[in-house]
């Protein structure tokens, strides 16, 4: 299979990921683009995808599916990736699958073998702004990350006392057990696509692309109107 993965819950990224190769080999990233910036998704994502497809000589006919990271992540950036993935899937008539964005970091942890404390849990955290993090709790089973709790949004100080991977750890290294070398990493389309391919090959139940906002809009239903004069109500 060859899939196009798009992940914008933090940085904007896209990747072509394939599992063509020996049956025992892990999926590999054929091409990818990643931005450092977390606030320019609407500008860079589409041209980045077009350039990546052109450079790789890949057309829609080569793709088996489109995968989108569904967050949690800041709303506007998150939507840019989801709407892009939905549109490409619609036009190309290819299946669309959602992936929880923090799984990307958890997969990096699994592949790199950094969490060698088998059977113990670890956390993945990313920046939720407003002095909070998005986070989830994972455990490794047969080399695969399993989600055990979350995703949630809340202050870093409220996290369970476990090693924390991801940019949310680096931001709050004073209050969490940030894992060196992994305290700045972000969810990226390459890792997300690799894990998606493994799950698809294993026959996992498909997930749709409903965004995981985890927060309501800030809108408040207005109360009684403010008075323009000092007059009391009769």
């Amino acid at each position: 299979m060859l899939i196009l993965a798009i992940e914008t819950s933090a940085v904007a990224s896209a990747a072509l990921v394939t599992d063509h190769g020996p049956p025992t080999a892990l999926p590999r990233v054929r091409a990818e683009f990643v931005t450092e910036d977390t606030r320019s998704h609407a500008e860079v994502l589409a041209p980045g995808i077009r350039q990546m497809l052109d450079d790789a000589g890949t057309g829609p006919g080569d793709l088996d599916a489109v995968v989108a990271g569904v967050g949690p992540g800041p709303f506007t950036g998150l939507r840019s990736g989801i709407v892009t993935a939905r549109t490409l899937s619609f036009v190309w008539n290819r299946p669309l699958h959602g992936m929880m964005s923090l799984d990307s970091v958890a997969w990096r942890v699994a592949v790199d073998g950094v969490h060698d404390d088998a059977g113990s849990d670890f956390l993945v955290a990313t920046d939720a702004r407003r002095k909070e993090v998005y986070w989830a709790r994972y455990r490794l089973a047969d080399g695969m990350p399993e989600l055990h709790d979350g995703p949630h949004v809340g202050p870093a100080a409220g996290l369970p006392q476990l090693p924390v991977y991801g940019a949310g750890a680096g931001l709050y290294a004073d209050v969490v057990d940030a894992v060196p070398g992994y305290a700045m990493i972000q969810p990226e389309a390459g890792a997300l696509g690799e894990l998606a391919l493994l799950r698809l090959a294993a026959g996992a139940r498909p997930v749709d692309t409903t965004p995981l906002y985890l927060r309501e809009s800030d809108a408040k239903v207005p109360g009684p109107r403010k008075r323009a004069t000092g007059a009391g109500r009769s």
Binding site: A42, L45, P47, P60, T84, V91
Partner: peptide, 19 residues
């Protein structure tokens, strides 16, 4: 509205990429 515009703009850009 910024967030509202962004959805249509990203959809339109993806349409342009796809077609």
């Amino acid at each position: 509205l910024a967030g509202a515009l962004m959805v249509g703009v990203c959809a339109a850009k993806a349409l342009a990429v796809a077609t």
